[in-house]
Each structure stands twice: as structure tokens, then as C-alpha cells.
Design a protein around this nucleic acid. Structure first.
Lengths: 345, 345
DNA sequence: CTGTTAGCGCTTTCAT
DNA sequence: ATGAAAGCGCTAACAG
């Protein structure tokens, strides 16, 4: 059903029908009523492509993210989807698996799809030629999870969080505190978390120990082996929850009790962590909110015909979520690493 | 950059440029070369909306699914995304949370978006007015996970799988075999699985026991309570992996060892099941493949200007994936419930 | 093999 | 408050 059919049936011109939909107050109530009736009767739906061709707006957002197989990003995307949907936008997600080449491909495709704006989580915001191009393109975008002073970001302060964890572990009496990480340069988040670990360990005069785990293997020897040694770590700070879950299994394989023999903390706050036999103590990120806020910011910018400004980047608060894998003091010590949310809205 | 600009620079008409892109062999090599050079130079990208307006094809697929927060559907969507992307289609996912009203809304929105086809997983394919409307609409679609004789489906035979599990449990000596299920009428899959359980229990002359769990609570008493009783079940057949993971925790809370005191089997085959301290024995569905096949079928139909035909529905093979939560005989008994894949391709 | 022409459905000046 | 008319960028007959 085209607008012309509605116009004819309502006895008005196509232009008036268009107005009745897009600027109802500019059309006389009586006329509007007739138009609405006609539209109803004909089950008229505006043709999105024609609107787009004319207005150059698609009301869709591209979402570039590493993977859907990590629940962190599934939770995030779920937030993105809800926020977009309730603002009348649809989303076009593309997973890139942390591969830079796929990030570029995806970007090109999304741009060709004429998305109105872009939400992206890239492997590494520092060395991403992508972002430079993107900024030059003039297409509105917001980075999520990534932190970078020259780009608009909705993120969490992973470095601070990690320092906080080291501090907690130290306060609990731990001295052999290891960090479990995937291939470290896989993402800038992992790097930041690692940096926080190193800094804090240094501050406490402790020797850092890095356990680097190939991401693909289910139960890598990289993980089981250090736990077999006499001077094994007593606390494992994991760069993400998936690694923490593997660490729990590695500990069990090594006949170690969690948390008595080895305490484990995760990072990300995936929902499943709370359902495990040993619930996961973890740094809970507001994954859904990261998505929500990103979308809101983007759409807000879109509506004012502006670009999201790097200076308005938001750092959302994280929180250490208690679990059985690492007992926390009660009450939590007043955190020496305050974390404020700054809102651009 | 419009096609006109390219045409001008290459010294040909717009139509020829269009042909050079859409039917290269119909254009003289020399001309084509000039056009390509011009396009390259101007960084020309075809305008998708204009193409759509003209051809009535968007090269995008709507994906209606229950939720992204269950890894089953995240794995599935990941398959969908890959298959779509490699066929040059983008996807527009919408999560409906098993709520029929949201299913209808989503459908309307996707249709308004002019998707070329639809992949959907609905709560209940039997009583979904949605599907009747959808079929009448003439828009090509494929159901995934749902089974229904009158719709094109890519699914798994959950009823047979469940009977197989009862049979395995019985063979392992279990007699008090309970089924753990969410609100049973939440989805037709859950119903089918439950039906398989009932049938098989009846065949073996065993009394069925249903443990029904409110989906939202993390550790529902519905689950812990039956495990405290003297005649507690010795085997828990769970309607999905998330419930199985909760069951593992419930068992631990009740001081029961898995599998010695109570054995647990899941259903779905999410990747995380293999990373737990007690790895999950489960019915592994080919989640990614369900997505892949659904997309392939849909796109194939699209290309022939046909609708996917119900008669060509595919039942993909499931398999019982061994884990520590329920020891399996070695080798597996030749399954009394053969499961063939029938391909429409 | 290539050009001309018309029009997909909508929005938006510009008139009235 | 409403209508007429032009055009967004592209493709598909139809001619030549």
C-alpha cells in the first residue's frame, strides 16, 4: 500500500498524508481523521526504503562487537537491542572475533548499509586505523568497552578495578597473587587490566606472576601446571569470567579447594557466574547498561545532528560482586579507588 | 557518490554503470574497465536504499528469537550471522523473551523493515496466530527449533532425545528419574521434551516425577527441596543446560555428590557445559548448524523465488555428549532411537 | 553492446 | 491548511 492509495481514499494529496504521519499537528483534525481511517483500512505501512532514499535516514544502528559467544557481549547486545528498539531503531550486529581485518570488513558493510550510527567494540582502540577512518567519515559512533581519550566511549575502568582486586587479595593475606589472562594483546581491555595488576603488585612490593592462557583450549596446561607447583599462587585474578570458570576447573583437577587452597576472582560479571557450584566472585560490569547508555548517547546525538564528543565519554561504575570463589571482608573496605559515573545526558 | 557521477566520469550512461555492477558479462570489457576505474576513483558505493526501492529487495533477514541471554541462542545467532554475512545478507535480530505479544510486535516491525525473509524461533508454534498470519503474508520464512508439520522447520527431535536419555538412565540402573523443567508451557520444545520423558518412563514402568522450576530464581527451593528427601531422585534429566547447571548447584547445596549421589543430564549443548568443575553430560544440539541451515534454506528459496516448503523441513541429528555429571557406558549402546538428517538442499 | 526513459514511494519546498 | 511538482539513486524494459 503506497501513500498515494491512502491519499486517494481520503480524498487528499499524497503530501497531506505524509504530513499527517510526520507532523500531525500541521494537518486539520478532520482531515487527519479521514487519513487515519483510510490508512487503517488499507493497512498502510510506510515504505522504509523510500523514506530512507528521501531523508537519508535508515533508523538503524550498526553494532560491531567481538563475539556473541562470550556472554558479556550477549548481555551487552541485549541492552543495545532493547534501547534501540524502544527508540524505534533496529540494529545490525556484526561479530568480528577480535580480528582487525574482519573489523574493517564489517565497518565497510555497515556503512554501505547506510546505518545512521555505529556502536563498536574493537580489539584495540589505540592502533585501530579503523577508528581514524571512521572519525573522518563523519558517521556518528560510540565506542563501548574501549577507552580512548580521542573517541567517544562508554566504558569501565578496568585498570582501577584490577588494582582494587590486588588490594583486596593483599588485605585477605594473599601474597602469591597471579593474574590469569588470555593472549594479552588480544584486546586493549585485557591490557588495561593487566596494567592495573602490575601497578598494584608493584605498589605492594609483590612479584607479579602472569599465567597466559591460549584462548581456544578448554583446559590448557598453562593453567593446570602452575597450580601443581609448591609455590603455587594462592589467589588467581582472572582477566575475564570465562577464564575464571576454567580456573575453577583447573583447581579442581589439581585437587585444590576453592577458595581455601586457591581463591579465584573473575572479571565481567556474567550472569552464569552466580549459578556455579562455587559462585564466582567477580568484578561486575554493567554490561546491559553499557549497551543502553551507548545507544542513548548515539541516538541523542543523532537527533541533534551532532557527533558524540570524546570529552563526554562515560566511565560507568563497576562493582566487586561477592561470591564463594573468593571470600570478601564484611563490610567491604571503603574502596580506595572511587569510581564515578559521568553522564553526558 | 551516485551512479550518475561514475557514468559521467567513465563517459557512459548510468544504465551501463548499473550493468557493469549487476551483470558484468553483458558489458564490453573495455567499457567495464573504464567504469571500474571511475568507480574506484570516486570511491563509489551503491546506495542500498535506492536499490531496495527499485528492486524491492533489502538483502537483509529478520531473526526473531527468544533471548540472547541463553547461550543456546547466542550460539545459534552466531551461526545465522556467519551464514548470512557470507551470502551478502545482513541480519536484524529481535529478542522476544517468549512473550507472544512481543513476538507479534517484532514481526510487524521486521516486516515494516522490508526484510527479505525471516528466521524465527517462537514460544509455541502450535498456537501461534503469528504463524498463520505470516504464512498468509507470503513472506519467506523458516522456523528454527520449533517443529510443526505445516511450517518449514529446522529442528531437532527433542522428544526422541529425551526418550533416549531415560533409556540411558534406566540402563545405568536408575529408577528414580526426575525431569527438571522450567514453566512447562513456556515453549513447545520444553513440552516435547517433557512428552518424551513421560512416554519413556511409562514404557519402563517408572513413575514420572516432575520438578518444575520458576525460571527467574537463581536457586529455587523447587530444586533443593526434592533433593533433601529420602526418596530423592538419583537422576535428574534437565530440560535445558541452564537448569542443569542450577541442578548441579542444588545438589552441592544438599551435600550430594554428582554423579555418585545424583546424576545430572542437561539439554542443549552450550559450550560452557564442558568447562565446569563437573562437566555436563548433555544432549548436544547443533546450535550453530541450525542457524546455518536455516539461513541457507531461506536464501536458497529467495534466489529461486519460492517459499521454503514445510515438506522439506529438516531434523538435524543431536548427540549425547559425555561429561562427568552422568557417566555413560562405553561404548554407547547402539541407539534405539535413530535420528536421520533430511536435507532439502 | 549501450542509451533513453520511466518510475519505485516518499518528503519537501513553493505556491495558493 | 493543502496541493503541485520535483527528485532522492537506482534498475529494467525497450530501442537501437
Amino acid at each position: 500500500m503506497s501513500i498515494a492509495a491512502v491519499a486517494q481514499r481520503a480524498g487528499v494529496s499524497p503530501a497531506t498524508v505524509s504530513r499527517a504521519f510526520n507532523a500531525p499537528q500541521t494537518v486539520a483534525p478532520a482531515t487527519r481523521a479521514r487519513i487515519e481511517a483510510a490508512a487503517q483500512f488499507l493497512a498502510y505501512t510506510p515504505n522504509a526504503s523510500a523514506q530512507t532514499l528521501r531523508t537519508r535516514r535508515t533508523r538503524s544502528l550498526g553494532v560491531l562487537l567481538p563475539t556473541l559467544l562470550n556472554p558479556v557481549f550477549a548481555e551487552y547486545l541485549s541492552g543495545v537491542a532493547d534501547a534501540a528498539s524502544s527508540a524505534g531503531y533496529s540494529i545490525v550486529p556484526v561479530a568480528t572475533d577480535y580480528v582487525e581485518a574482519r573489523e574493517s570488513d564489517a565497518l565497510v558493510k555497515l556503512i554501505a548499509r547506510d546505518v545512521d550510527g555505529l556502536l563498536l567494540t574493537v580489539a584495540n582502540a589505540q592502533q585501530s586505523a579503523l577508528l581514524a577512518r571512521l572519525r573522518r567519515s563523519g558517521l556518528p559512533y560510540v565506542l563501548t568497552y574501549n577507552r580512548h581519550p580521542e573517541h567517544p566511549c562508554v566504558c569501565v575502568d578496568g585498570e582501577t578495578a584490577m588494582r582494587q582486586l590486588v588490594s583486596l587479595a593483599h588485605a585477605a593475606g594473599h601474597r602469591r597473587i597471579a593474574m590469569v589472562s588470555g593472549q594479552r594483546n588480544a584486546s586493549d581491555r585485557a591490557q588495561q587490566r593487566h596494567q592495573g595488576y602490575l601497578t598494584a603488585m608493584h605498589e605492594f612490593g609483590l612479584a607479579p606472576r602472569l599465567i597466559e592462557v591460549p584462548f581456544m583450549e578448554a583446559l590448557p596446561s598453562a593453567l593446570t601446571q602452575p597450580l601443581g607447583k609448591a609455590d603455587r599462587p594462592t589467589a588467581l585474578l582472572c582477566s575475564n569470567d570465562l577464564l575464571a570458570i576454567r580456573s575453577l576447573r583447573a583447581a579442581a583437577m589439581a585437587q585444590l579447594r576453592v577458595p581455601e587452597d586457591v581463591a579465584v576472582i573473575g572479571f565481567d560479571g556474567i550472569a552464569l557466574g552466580q549459578e556455579l557450584v562455587t559462585t564466582l566472585t567477580t568484578v561486575a560490569q554493567p554490561n546491559r547498561d553499557i549497551g543502553l547508555r551507548g545507544v542513548q548517547w548515539l541516538i541523542d546525538a543523532l537527533s541533534r545532528h551532532e557527533l558524540p564528543r570524546p570529552a563526554h565519554s562515560i566511565t560507568l561504575p563497576h562493582q566487586v560482586r561477592p561470591g564463594e570463589s573468593f571470600p570478601l571482608p564484611h563490610p567491604m573496605p571503603s574502596t580506595p579507588f572511587p569510581c564515578h559515573a559521568e553522564s553526558p545526558l
